[in-house]
């Protein structure tokens, strides 16, 4: 579904991604871990199409299409979803309008008619129940005045409504207390499906207790330096990253 080959990218003249190779198949959950500044968020943003990053080499194939040739909005409509680490507040743009516009953009791209207003509300309500969100969220501005946890829940709500083929969740677990973490994890698990895939970018293995990954990768200095199964995450939790970084340098 997602095939990344030798992806290199820089911002403001500084190279951040140094040749990423990654293969994500339908039905899989991948976790990308790594120390601060290793390029995890850059990878997420580059895949979602943030223009400030310049891709200098490599290719990315998404569902048979050249992802890097598509603008951000087209990637979204093709079924790629980025859950932001720091979801931006947009006062004046209503949450429910954004959800509806996003869903309709995707449906139009797929040649489907716009969603019926009644069906749409029923769908959103169902997803909000999963995310344990109060209906008053809908009428508020996008993320406006939301707490850190509310913003992350809202990201997962959007994901559930849009049902992407590939969800890339950038540190969705950061800043969450244990109850919120469980709700978010439940949301992510709801999306798991043989036809979909999830890439979790995370610092800690805590989230992986609730969303069990098939593959774990360690990113450092813009490269994947080790891959393994879930036990790698547990080992990282015990030993930290230094042993990997040292052995790589040596």
């Amino acid at each position: 579904m997602l095939s990344i080959v030798d992806l290199q990218a820089r911002i403001a003249g500084k190279t951040i991604l140094n040749g990423i190779d990654l293969e994500v198949r339908p039905g899989e959950v991948h976790a990308i871990m790594g120390p601060n500044g290793s390029g995890k968020s850059t990878l997420a943003q580059v895949l979602a199409g943030r223009e400030e990053y310049e891709v200098t080499a490599g290719r990315v194939d998404f569902d048979g299409r050249d992802l890097l040739a598509m603008p951000a909005e087209e990637r979204a409509r093709a079924g790629l979803f980025l859950g932001f680490q720091y979801p931006v507040e947009i006062p004046g743009v209503n949450n429910v309008y954004l959800l509806k516009a996003a869903l309709n953009a995707k449906r139009r791209a797929a040649g489907q008619p716009e969603v019926d207003a009644y069906e749409f509300l029923a769908l959103v309500r169902e997803k909000m129940r999963i995310m344990q969100m109060n209906e008053s969220f809908l009428s508020r501005g996008v993320n406006e005045g939301f707490s850190g946890g509310e913003k992350k829940r809202n990201e997962i709500l959007q994901m559930l409504v849009l049902e992407p083929k590939l969800a890339i969740l950038d540190e969705t677990d950061s800043g969450l207390d244990i109850d919120a973490l469980k709700v978010v994890a439940q949301g992510v698990n709801t999306l798991r499906h043989p036809e979909r895939a999830v890439v979790l970018v995370t610092h800690y293995q805590r989230l992986l207790d609730y969303v069990v990954p098939d593959h774990v990768h360690v990113l450092a200095r813009g490269r994947i330096i080790k891959s393994g199964d879930r036990s790698l995450a547990l080992e990282l939790e015990r030993r930290g990253y230094d042993w990997l970084l040292e052995s790589k340098v040596a």
Binding site: A72, E73, R75, F81, F84, P91, G92, A101, A105, L162
Partner: peptide, 30 residues
């Protein structure tokens, strides 16, 4: 236009023109 806001809307699949209009409108909403 705030590039973070614009990217957020684009990443949800909105057309660039729509996203820009929406942000301008939101700016005037006060």
């Amino acid at each position: 236009l705030d590039p973070d806001m614009l990217f957020y809307l684009l990443s949800r699949g909105l057309d660039r023109a729509t996203a820009q209009s929406l942000l301008v409108f939101a700016f005037l909403a006060d």
